[in-house]
Nucleic acid binder design. Structure first.
Length: 250
DNA sequence: TCATTAAATTGTT
DNA sequence: AACAATTTAATGA
């Protein structure tokens, strides 16, 4: 298992729907918008929801493929990325538990505009395009959630552009973590983000060593606490405001 | 439930 | 990239 490279999207397998199963009652609780629905809506949704286990490197959806589902992460960690014209992959964001994606393309019934790849063994669920639109046509609560989602996601993309311009590795890690700990977008994360330093490296585009170094700096700055297989946030605002100048002033 | 072993993750060079 | 140290997960009595 080489630690330097991650399977590229081009030669990775795509998850098949035939591998999916029905959702368990316990797993339904991990869906942030389920409480916004009434009895009838919830029944139809639970009936429609499919769950599939995704192995590291596997693709949940691929650029250009027709939209089939609106996806959500129940457990694990996914990466949203795209290939530039030059063939270099650019990571937009990580998707921790509680995150839902693809609403933009589902809304317009277009093809997916990015690749979603599992960084680790993950549990992914989703509802069909038909059910998505059915909900959109009758549930105000669902509409509010989707609107919030679109709005917050826009903010994330803007933040991602800023992160790309940052030269300091410490700052990049800090800002990326700030995005990953988004309490509204990823309510499943809570105070503890389950992510290894290797996975964070794939996400931010840094070596594991450099990520380790950055995390230690952030821990010294009292912004996070490093735990085995994960990170705990102590100061979310501080993470987002973090700059090298502040650290140097210590 | 506990002890042992294997695997995963972190810290360091 | 390699290595040692640490933590967790798996196994079986």
């Amino acid at each position: 298992m080489p630690s330097t490279s991650f399977p590229s999207a081009s030669d990775a397998a795509t998850v098949r729907v035939s591998r999916s199963r029905a959702i368990l009652a316990d797993e339904v609780r991990g869906i942030p918008w389920i409480d916004r629905l009434d009895e009838e809506e919830r029944t139809r949704v639970v009936d429609d929801l499919r769950v599939v286990e995704v192995d590291p490197g596997e693709l949940v959806c691929r650029v250009g493929r027709p939209v089939t589902y609106w996806f959500g992460v129940l457990d694990g960690l996914l990466k949203m990325s795209n290939d530039t014209a030059l063939g270099m992959p650019i990571t937009f964001t990580g998707l921790p538990p509680g995150g839902w994606f693809g609403e933009g393309t589902v809304l317009k019934r277009e093809a997916y505009r990015y690749n979603i790849q599992a960084l680790r063994k993950s549990l992914v669920t989703g509802i069909s395009v038909a059910t998505f639109h059915w909900l959109l046509d009758r549930s105000i609560g669902f509409n509010r959630y989707v609107m919030m989602q679109l709005n917050e996601r826009l903010g994330q993309f803007i933040a991602a552009r800023e992160i790309d311009r940052l030269t300091s590795a410490n700052e990049r890690v800090a800002r990326s973590l700030g995005a990953l700990f988004h309490p509204v977008l990823y309510p499943g994360v809570g105070g503890l983000l389950r992510i290894t330093q290797l996975e964070l490296g794939y996400l931010v585009g840094l070596s594991r060593q450099r990520v380790n170094e950055a995390l230690q700096a952030l821990q010294v700055a009292q912004l996070i606490r490093i735990e085995y297989g994960g990170l705990r946030v102590l100061d979310l605002d501080g993470l987002r405001r973090y700059t090298e100048a502040v650290a140097a002033a210590r």
